[in-house]
Structures are given as C-alpha cells and as structure tokens.
Nucleic acid binder design. Structure first.
Length: 505
RNA sequence: GGGGGUGUAGCUCAGUGGUAGAGCAUCUGCCUUUUAAGCAGAGGGUCGAUGGUUCGAUCCCAUCCACCCUCACCA
C-alpha cells in the first residue's frame, strides 16, 4: 500500500467490480478517520432534540440562540467552495446543516468535506438560523461522525424503485422512500388505537401458544415443526380462537390477543404466510354486540389516524360515519342473483351452481354453494363497510346455531373496500354440538378437505366445564392497514414480507 | 399451476444483429447562505443464467432463475 492514498486512488489496483470500488473509496475514508484517531463507530451521542422537535420550536430556539445537538443520516450534500450544506434525516424529519470554513477551521472543514459521505450518520452541535433562501438550518459549530456508511445509497431523488429490492432490503427502502416510513408509522398508530380502544372497554390482553399440538380456529393448512425434547410434532398456529375461548371458560370475561398467525398457503397481494390478527372474546355478549363493538372500534381507529371518517382506498371513497350496512348472506345473494337459497335444498342449490357455471368441485354441501355464490356475485361489490351475517351452518363449525333458523349460524363478516376484514360469531358453547361439528369436520377431512378442523378433545372438555354465552371476533390487521393506508399489496404493510431467498453465486 | 410483463453501471432508465449510453452517485479541480446547487474533467459494465441460430448475440430462439401483474387456489 502506498502512503499517499489521495494520489493513488486510480490506476493502482486491478479493475474491480464497480460496487466494490465505491465501497473501497469509503473504506479508505474509514481508515483515514482511524488514522486521525477518530472513532468512526463511537458509542453514543447526546441529542437535545429530535429534528422534528427542533423544527417545531424554531422561533424560540433561534431567537435565544440556543445551542442544540441533532443527529441523523446524511441524505444530500452540497458543497459551495468553503461552505457545505448537508441535509440530515432522523425519524421525525429532516433539516439542513451548514458547515462553514470560518466557523469550524480548516482542518475540521477538510475532514467534513473529504471524509463524510452520503449515508453517513453524524451528530451536529450549533444554533438554528434561516438562510437567505428561507431554509431552516443548523449553523454547525461542532460535528461528530457517529457511523461511517460503507455501502452507497440509491439515487438521491429516484430512490429505490425495484420492488424486489425494496422488499428484500427494507432498511434501504425505509431510508430513501419517505412514504414507506409513513405507512409503517401509520401501522403503529393503528395498532395503538386498537389497543387503547380495547383497554378502555375492559379487555385483558393475553398471550397464547404459537406452537400448538392441535391447530384449529380456522380453515387453513398449517406449518409443521418438531420439538426435539418432547419428540413431538407441533404446528404454528393458524388462529388463536380455541385458546382464547379456554380463557373465557377460565373466567376471563373479556380477553384479546394481538397475534401473528401462520398459514401454509399461496401468496399474493392479499396473503402473506405470516400475518397479524386481533382476536377478542366477550362473555355474555352475542354477535350483535360484537357488531356494535367492531363498528365503534373501526370508527375510532379511522378517526384517530385521519381525523375524519371518509377515506380513499384504491380510488373508492369509503365512509365510516354512517352505521355499517347489515344484511344476511342469503339476502345479499338473493338481491344479486334473484335466487333464494333458503327455499332450496343442497341438490337444488347444486343445480343453480351448474346453471351459473360456478365451479362445483368443492361444493360438498349447501353452505358451500351459498358461500360460493356470495363470493362470486356479492363480495366484490361491498365497498362501504358492510356486515354480512347469518352464515350457513355447514361452513361455520365454531359458531352457534342461529336462534331463528337451524340451517344458519349467528356469524358475520365485515367487508370494507371489497376486502374481508373481520369474522365474528356468537360462540358455540354447547359441548355436545361442538363435538358433533368437529366430527363432521373430521369426515370432511377424510373426504379430502385439507383445511377442515381437527378434533380438539381438550377444547370440548373445556366446554364441558361450561363457557358462558360469548361473542368473539377475529380481524386481519394487515388488510385493515392496507385499507387505511391505501396500500395495494399486503407486502406494502408488512415490513419484511416473505420472499424466496436469493441464490448465492 | 395458467396467461402477461420485467431483468442493461451502486441507483433510475435509454438503446442496437458488428461486444453499449444518459442522469444521479463516485474520483480530481473551481466556487463562503446553497438546496435535484452549478461549472470543468475522469473512472466505472460477463447487458439475469445456460444453451442454440449466426462469420458475429446484450439484441433473435429455447430452457432456467428472480420479481411484478392477473387468473386459479385460499375464512
């Protein structure tokens, strides 16, 4: 190695791939800093303000010439002879910092000019002022390098566009694409609102097993895993339902969980193999009470986030202010198709399916036919918040029989913007009925329905001890966040969506 | 799984059957209130991978890989 790196920057080594050359430049600066006894990775920096705070208190801070200390990542750097303007960002915003030769001296100025790159993280100390062009700025008296960045950032104004790279390297996406940061800040606010709402209603937040020997509470294929010490096959949960209802049996009258669930199925813009749900159970309530609760919760969440009840999602205006529409599944189908399925038995329903050329392979009972018609003919039209209620018994193995019609259950789903966002029932608490439902699920499984429930003997036992009448609700957080942040894909609201690993070499 | 699309410099993108170009970024100068700063110069590429056609392929063809959209599947 030569002792004058400045002049031997080029032509010395064999050609390298370009990225390596960029990294090599930065490594050289790193080494130069160390040579000057400057630690490029120091331990801490005491900030007096977040950048956003300093901006909000500009009048006071600048008039008193208060010395402030801010830190952040360098996103833009503009050199003007013996003055350098730099934009630094933290979580709360960005601010311009001004390093002037006369203020910091020749040596420091040169260090800042030559050794500090875009992407580096620095701390500055100085006072706030406004430049001629009206930009709020920190006049830097001192600065510290807090982290030398070795990998160059993407283009300073195009940002990172390639979706694959954005998902794979979300940290880069977050650095350069402010709207991504905003989406996840909103995600945090939404979850906070939900938690606040449920706490105010007296619900206890609990945690239940993710690793389950018998999975249940939904119709889905699970991920399997194995516990070595117990030599036991375990499943990652597909839902929390059966454990939370055991807690209702145990006397916790209002419980809820913020849960990650896992389903081993296809992936698309609405499905990620791991996703977030909220499930809640409320003793002595029925599905009507849950409907009211859900509507109140949605309104609060929307208003907390946007300060109003009307939002736009994918070009649709959705209004949360009026009472949500409410209609039974069979009535909704009747309105769209003219068919009154309540008047039809399974065979007659099957005939209708053929007539409408609706795929009939999976239509193994009356309920499935009704559901299929609903999905095909009704679901896409449900833009405004709508409760679809009174689902067929055949497709609702955990819901209580409808008090007025034995073919139906007391169950609803809420649709917003064409997406299913919630599923709730008056919970089935008759242990004998529950056992019978499980048994028919097992038969369906034997017929090849891979998503049918397993028989959870212990759950039936729990019901034998007695579960009070209970209303329960589960709703997908990711889809709700998609709607509230106007995001097209679930991958835009999950920080690290599942990706196929990149091949090495 | 079917159909459609994309893959060229670190990033964003042009482009051609004769082995490639811009802007930003990088490097070297100049510039003390700039702001996508500016000006002058320089370096940087296995054109996703592998085969084939061709005198010659980044371009045409086939296969593969990754991603996106869409359909199917999917509480």
């Amino acid at each position: 190695m030569d002792n004058n790196p400045e002049q031997n920057r080029k032509n010395t080594e064999q050609p390298q791939i370009p990225l390596e050359e960029l990294i090599r430049n930065r490594r050289r600066k790193l080494a130069d800093l160390r040579e000057k006894n400057i630690n490029p990775y120091p331990y801490k920096f005491d900030r007096t303000h977040m950048i956003g705070e300093a901006r909000n208190n500009y009048a006071d801070l600048s008039s008193k010439e208060t010395v402030i200390r801010l830190a952040g990542r360098i996103m833009l750097k503009r050199k003007m002879g013996k003055a350098i303007f730099t934009d630094i960002h933290d979580m709360t915003g960005k601010i311009q910092v001004y390093v002037k030769l006369d203020n910091v001296g020749k040596e420091i100025f040169k260090l800042y000019d030559k050794k500090i790159d875009l992407g580096d993280i620095i701390g500055v100390e100085g006072v706030l002022f406004t430049t001629k062009t009206g930009e709020m700025t920190v006049m830097v008296a001192k600065f510290e390098i807090l982290c030398k960045s070795l990998h160059p950032l993407p283009d300073k104004h195009s940002g990172l566009v390639d979706k694959e790279q954005r998902y794979r390297r979300r940290y880069v996406d977050l650095i350069v694409n402010p709207e991504v940061r905003e989406t996840f800040i909103q995600r945090g606010k939404i979850i906070h609102s939900i938690r606040e709402f449920l706490r105010n209603r007296g619900f206890l937040e609990v945690e239940t097993p993710i690793l389950q020997p018998i999975y249940g509470g939904a119709a889905a294929k699970p991920f399997k895993t194995h516990h070595n010490a117990l030599d036991l096959e375990l499943f990652l949960r597909i839902a929390d339902e059966l454990y939370l209802k055991r807690l209702i049996v145990g006397g916790f009258d209002k419980v809820w969980e913020f849960c990650k669930d896992f389903r081993n199925e296809g992936m698309d813009r609405l499905h990620n193999p791991e996703f977030s749900m909220v499930e809640l159970y409320w003793a002595y309530a029925d599905y009507k009470d849950i409907m009211a609760l859900f509507q109140d919760m949605m309104r609060k969440v929307v208003f907390d986030l946007h300060g109003k009840y009307k939002i736009e999602y994918e070009g649709m205006e959705i209004d949360f202010e009026p009472d949500f529409k409410e209609i039974s599944m069979v009535d909704a189908v009747k309105i769209e198709t003219g068919i009154d399925f309540l008047q039809l038995d399974f065979d007659a329903a099957g005939e209708k399916a053929k007539e409408f050329e609706i795929d009939s392979e999976e239509l193994i009972n009356w309920g499935k036919v009704v559901e299929k018609f609903f999905e095909e003919k009704v679901e896409p039209k449900l833009v405004q918040p709508t409760f679809i209620k009174d689902f067929p018994l055949d497709i609702s193995p955990l819901a209580k029989v409808h008090r007025e019609n034995p073919r139906l259950t007391e169950r609803f789903e809420c649709y917003i913007g064409g997406l299913e966002t919630g599923n709730a029932f008056s919970e089935l608490n008759d242990p004998d009925d529950q056992r019978a439902r499980f048994e028919s699920q097992v038969k369906a499984r034997e017929k090849g329905d891979e998503e049918a429930h397993q028989l959870d003997e212990d759950y039936v036992t729990a019901l034998m001890y007695g579960m009070p009448p209970t209303g329960g609700l589960g709703f997908g957080i990711d889809r709700l966040i998609m709607i509230l942040t106007n995001s097209h894909s679930i991958r835009d609201v999950i920080l690290f969506p599942q990706m196929r690993p990149e091949k090495d070499e």
